[in-house]
Design a protein around this nucleic acid. Structure first.
Lengths: 249, 249
DNA sequence: AGGGTAGACATACAGCGTAAGCCTGTCAAC
DNA sequence: GTTGACAGGCTTACGCTGTATGTCTACCCT
């Protein structure tokens, strides 16, 4: 039997051409569905119906493919209307970035482990937008950079915590339950405290139900309000020159 | 020739016993020096002078080893003196957590990709400390959890951005230079904008020198002040019940 | 018809986590 | 003493990974 595959190319270009975009799309899909570790060249190749090595005609190496994922995610950012007071633009920009990050939670891990800036124009546009919105408040560029990094860091960190459910608690709620209180298959000698002894951890035990039911939206808005209000106050009263205190040590 | 190795055990326990602690220590060292990917069972085993499979007598699997690293890092947290106004305790606690994270930047990536809570008592102590400090301000537990997550997320995100130098800029400064503006070995057809065209990215270009020279300490304190001041104001004037606005969409 | 090339496939290698089993030194019970 | 259990190493093996290298086929241009 000769391979029937060959037939395809004999009479028609039935196999649609492989492109970088199709590859990146497939890789992103794998990452979203099965996690960062599942993104391997063979796995992605399989999804686009091709052998692993064929991908290398369109991406330099795996790094390049991951770069592609990052760029692909960044370009999902939808720019809010800028014809409003700066604080509303900034707030909506922050919400939008959170939306994008939550849509592809694993890109945070991707950034974290590669710790490498992105350089292509398209990926820098959201940053340009943010800086424009921030400096629209009337602060100098130096302060604008400070504010940008602070707000950017806040969003990244809070979303990272909420997707990771870093300290999620055990009351089953909406399908996704987690341990912390329900003895997670503990290695005997070790975790003598999976039941969270109230004498050692009174605050955590008291906070447990709230940790479990905490609404991520409300939480995000809470911190965002603190930051934005603080910034606006500082802009309107430019007398106080950044009273940040040096650490004593 | 019989193997000379055998001689060792013939007359003395020269080979000091392998322990979980020694293994975790070695793994942490590898992670700090060579990054998260370098932490493999074989690599760690080599560092403690043993074959890979021997590690499995002391750690259940690689997951367990990584858990060990997390716990090991958490226990570096040095608890600030609590006999002071809550805001100072909170500020020093935040600084301390940042210090720990910066000492082992890769644990952030570790948490990000495993997105799994930690369950052992020792690792929860810093969280207990934080909740105690925060509720010391006199807020209810629910708000305390909000505040905890917001500040915790802020620290994590800002440190993640500063270690990743996510948008680091190119003026060489203190050894560690990065691209963005200095054409990073660009793939020809692609990054037509590595020079940051000022017409497309005016704000970024204007901000570049400040992005490059931004002092991370100052930046961290800036955002931390915003958050803490906002929280204190909200505690002192409990009339306003969290004016967080729902997102319109 | 002949040559070049683009884009696919196939093979191979080193390194990964770990299941399964083996080998040896130590020590308690007899 | 001898014996037997066992703790704690080592070895082998399997299927996975990224990718260097080479080959094969279909098409385009002359």
């Amino acid at each position: 039997m000769s391979k029937t595959k060959r037939r395809l190319s004999a009479n028609a270009p039935l196999r649609e051409p492989l492109t970088r975009d199709r590859i990146v799309e497939a890789a992103l899909h794998v990452m979203d569905q099965e996690g960062l570790d599942a993104v391997s060249m063979r796995r992605v190749a399989r999804d686009v119906g091709v052998e692993a090595m064929s991908l290398y005609h369109h991406v330099r190496d795996k790094e390049d493919l991951l770069d592609g994922i990052c760029a692909r995610v960044m370009c999902e950012f939808r720019y809010p209307d800028e014809d409003r007071p700066w604080i509303e633009v900034a707030r909506d920009g922050a919400r939008e970035w959170r939306r994008v990050l939550r849509a592809h939670p694993n890109v945070i891990a991707l950034w974290a482990e590669r710790q490498r800036p992105m350089t292509d124009l398209e990926s820098l546009m959201p940053m340009e937008f943010a800086l424009r919105a921030i400096t629209g408040a009337g602060m100098d560029i130096r302060t604008g950079v400070l504010v940008f990094n602070v707000i950017g860091g806040y969003i990244m960190g809070v979303v990272m915590m909420e997707v990771g459910a870093m300290f999620s608690a055990g009351t089953s709620r909406g399908g996704k339950t987690l341990d912390l209180g329900t003895a997670p298959a503990e290695r005997p000698g070790e975790a003598s405290a999976s039941f969270l002894p109230p004498d050692r951890l009174p605050c955590i035990v008291a906070a447990l139900p709230h940790l479990a039911e905490c609404d991520p939206d409300e939480q995000f808005e809470f911190g965002l309000d603190l930051l934005l209000a603080g910034i606006q106050a500082r802009v309107e009263a430019p007398a106080s020159r950044s009273p940040a205190q040096r650490r004593p040590s």
